[in-house]
Design a protein around this nucleic acid. Structure first.
Length: 824
DNA sequence: AAATCGTATCTC
DNA sequence: AGATACGATTTT
């Protein structure tokens, strides 16, 4: 027998490069296996959940090795596809596997220990304690099991560890590592008869309960609900269901249990509803949809990825449904990606009516336990009671699929598919293509306004292309009207932010009992506050941005770090009390509408009004049922919602989008305006879109009016080629961060210089981003543009090497560096 | 990321 | 000197 110790290489949920080798103790030898979770000590105290990546026999030489403490799983939580997928993400997006782990696994499956501190009651101080030590003991005497971060918070100190250590040595406190309980199964309380009473016995019992009318009533209700004497096996009766049925109380039920007539029992239930609901057939496709579907079939024979370019309201969803049906028949899993939760509500409902409980939804507003259940459910992949279709956001590409047949990426152009912070900075649309490739599955990208990159790939034959330009039920595309607010301002015709044309149209719509959507890409009340005498604007103390005024809580808030203060009453510069809010956020627009249209029912939809779990659905529901006349919102209102009574869409300020300093600004503006416009229009009446702008002659606005995607594309692709941008070049952004602005600039200059020696003119910068300070850390960027045909892997290798060289220079050691591959 | 170690700074 | 603050180092 081979008695040499066996080792396991683990992925730990830490932003550290590489994998970590631990020994497998004898008693765990049979348990530990690739893909399972194990608990290991890391550093002096902490315990982490690691995932076994490899088991081997080569003992590491350079360090003493620790042992695995426990194995958490009977079955692996990660399958072979996922290991490959993680490796790809880690390599392509240049981040440690530990970061991928953190993003991919719901935190309910990642236990982590936390230090809990308790006071020892009998402790008496032999020597006088320091002020902070006294303070800590004071806090501990109020509550036990206090965490270190909580202590730091309550004392107001940055670091209490030295004091904790001192107190520990003096024997005043106790420190314990507790593993926070992860996922808990949900149990439901049921009630049943404690004996299989005969009808005769039951009669006696009822008789005995004559004096306890309430109890009698409750028992009777139980017999009714369970159909006890009618069914061979009585039905399950939930405690809460029973109590509700006769409006009884728990204490009455308890006395029946004490009399040993009824008894409680518990069963684990899924948080997810699997009750079968009534299903309706998928809809018959119209002539154009049928043709598109046939084309998709043909092209999938040759290509692995197809772009379905269909105008808004052309019925792409119904085509998806037919494709999903086909995959289901083959026994395959389907992943349906959406850019954000905001979009899901209407599509969930549509898919659920066709596929019922085969559809699972995965997004960030679910709590941990729910996410774990979905994860486990997908992992099981049974045909009964498991999701075959996952409707989810970005992170659902990490679910444990075993048998994917099709990935649909809806609204492919959306930038929310790209994760910006923290690592992994992946694009779910691009990752989906790799995931498809792993499973030998197909990918369908769907949108009315393709991203320039995707459209280029489709035109050049890398992807298939299927077009669908007929709107269903022949709803006409809306009429788009421009309103020159520069002119209106000059003539003093503007009523705050509203042009006379817009107000006119709004009045008509309201008079016709039709609905209105207003779009303003700015939340809060006013983007900034300004002193009228000297022009001073309150800034965030931690970031290089001005503070946004929010009226509902009367606060100035930084949208980058969340810092909030009460608005100052006087100017910090000149002392003037003449402070005025400038610009328009959704909150202010809502307020002004209430004055202008006192009879209209107005609501606002932005990040602030949709924080709560179902707030978004409630708003949509209200609007759908025509309980609202005007909906004001940020980009949330532009995405995939279909309402059939909206006759007017107003875009309040098109210029802020157009003037955004980014090479994708025009493309993004076109997409945004085209998408919002798609919300207008009804079965028998052409909708109207009014765009307010200072630059009515802007070529992009012309493209929007003429609904000419091709022209916009032709123009943009030319610019992309001329200025070396995607799809002709691949971008990698090198980001440097440090608290010291001089140091970070110096480091960036040094790195850019050494990179120029290798990449030459492909290096741009260093340049400070528009917001060059967030949370008191300064940021500098260097941009690398490399030809599409050259090897990105090699470029990344060189970047890494050069970054490591920089880190070897003493003064630059503490500079943070990371890469953003394909930045947005 | 978080604990620990090493060193600079503050306070009486 | 001792307490405190902060940065660098280490983690398998």
């Amino acid at each position: 027998m081979n008695k040499t110790p066996v080792f396991a290489d683990l992925i730990l949920p830490l932003p550290l490069a590489g994998i970590f080798t631990y020994s497998i103790p004898l008693e765990l030898k049979n348990d530990v296996a690739i893909g399972k979770r194990v608990v290991v000590p890391f550093g002096s105290k902490k315990l982490y959940t690691g995932i076994v990546k490899k088991i081997h026999n080569s003992a590491p030489q350079d360090y003493t090795i620790k042992a695995i403490l426990a194995c958490l799983d009977e079955e692996p939580v990660l399958n072979a596809y996922q290991f490959q997928f993680w490796d790809w993400i880690s390599q392509y997006y240049q981040c440690p596997l530990g970061d991928v782990f953190k993003a991919a696994i719901p935190s309910g499956l990642k236990l982590e220990s936390q230090t809990k501190i308790t006071k020892i009651e009998e402790f008496e101080a032999k020597s006088p304690l320091s002020k902070t030590e006294e303070q800590i003991l004071q806090i501990l005497s109020h509550s036990k099991d206090v965490s270190i971060s909580k202590l730091n918070q309550s004392t107001g100190l940055k670091n209490t560890l030295p004091q904790i250590k001192a107190l520990l040595e003096k024997g005043a406190i106790e420190v314990e590592e507790q593993i926070t309980r992860g996922y808990k199964e949900k149990k439901q309380e049921f009630i049943r008869l404690s004996n299989n009473f005969s009808e005769e016995q039951m009669g006696e019992i009822m008789n005995e309960l004559k004096k306890a009318k309430k109890q009698q009533e409750l028992l009777l209700s139980y017999l009714n609900l369970s159909k006890h004497f009618f069914e061979t096996a009585p039905l399950k009766v939930g405690v809460s269901e029973l109590l509700k049925s006769v409006n009884s109380s728990r204490s009455i039920l308890k006395s029946l249990v004490e009399k040993n007539i009824l008894q409680f029992y518990y069963e684990q239930i899924d948080r997810i509803d699997f009750s079968a609901s009534e299903l309706s057939e998928s809809k018959q496709l119209n002539e154009y949809q049928t043709k598109a579907l046939a084309e998709i079939h043909t092209q999938f024979k040759e290509k692995n990825c197809i772009l379905l370019h269909g105008v808004t309201s052309s019925g792409k969803t119904e085509i998806y449904i037919h494709l999903i049906e086909e995959q289901l028949k083959l026994g395959k899993q389907i992943l349906y990606l959406l850019p954000e939760i905001a979009l899901t509500t209407q599509i969930i409902n549509r898919l659920k009516t066709v596929f019922g409980n085969k559809v699972g939804v995965y997004h960030s507003k679910f709590n941990d336990a729910e996410r774990v259940e979905i994860y486990n459910n997908v992992k099981q992949n049974k045909t009964e009671n498991s999701y075959q279709i996952i409707l989810g956001v970005r992170s659902s590409v990490f679910l444990p699929f075993q048998n994917l047949g099709l990935i649909i990426v809806d609204e492919e152009h959306e930038n929310t598919y790209k994760q910006f912070d923290p690592a992994p900075r992946y694009n779910a649309r691009d990752a989906a293509l790799y995931l498809s490739h792993l499973h030998q599955a197909k990918t369908l990208l769907g949108t009315a306004t393709p991203s320039v990159e995707t459209y280029y790939n489709a035109l050049n034959g890398k992807y298939g292309l299927v077009q669908l330009f007929q709107r269903h039920q022949n709803i006409e595309l809306p009429e788009i009207i421009l309103s020159d607010i520069k002119e209106a301002r000059r003539k003093k015709q503007m009523k705050s932010i509203f042009s006379p044309e817009l107000l006119q149209l709004m009045e008509t719509s309201l008079a016709n009992k039709e609905q209105i959507i207003l779009f303003q890409n700015r939340r809060g009340y006013a983007p900034y506050l300004e002193c009228k005498s000297c022009g001073w604007v309150p800034q965030c103390p931690n970031c290089s941005v001005s503070l946004t005024y929010h009226r509902y809580n009367n606060q100035l808030i930084c949208h980058y770090c969340g810092h909030g203060i009460h608005p100052p009453t006087s100017c910090e510069h000149c002392g003037s009390t003449n402070l005025e809010d400038r610009g328009f956020g959704t909150e202010k627009i809502e307020e002004e509408l209430e004055v202008l249209f006192p009879d209209a029912r107005i609501a606002r939809m932005d990040l602030d009004t949709t924080r709560k779990k179902h707030a978004y659905e409630k708003l949509i529901y209200k609007f759908e049922n025509r309980n609202l006349d005007i909906l004001v919102g940020t980009q949330m209102v532009s995405k995939g919602l279909d309402f059939d009574n909206v006759s007017l869409v107003g875009i309040l300020n098109a210029d802020s989008m157009l003037n955004f300093p980014d090479f994708r600004a025009y493309e993004r503006s076109y997409q945004m305006m085209a998408q919002v416009s798609g919300r207008a229009g009804r079965k028998n009446k052409r909708g109207k879109v009014l765009i307010q702008t200072y630059t009515p002659d802007h070529p992009i606005l012309r493209n929007v009016i003429e609904n000419d995607y091709a022209a916009m594309y032709a123009n943009q692709i030319e610019e992309r080629q001329a200025y070396a941008y995607p799809p002709f070049y691949r971008l990698i952004q090198i980001v440097l961060k440090h608290k010291d602005q001089n140091l970070v600039n110096k480091a960036a200059n040094y790195l850019a210089k050494s990179l120029r020696k290798i990449f030459g003119v492909r290096i741009f910068g260093p340049q400070a981003p528009i917001i060059n300070r967030i949370q008191n850390t300064y940021i500098v960027n260097i941009l690398l543009k490399i030809e599409k045909k050259s090897s990105p892997a090699k470029a990344k290798w060189i970047l890494n090497q050069q970054a490591n060289f920089l880190k070897e220079i003493d003064q630059f050691k503490s500079i943070q560096i990371y890469f953003d591959v394909d930045p947005m």
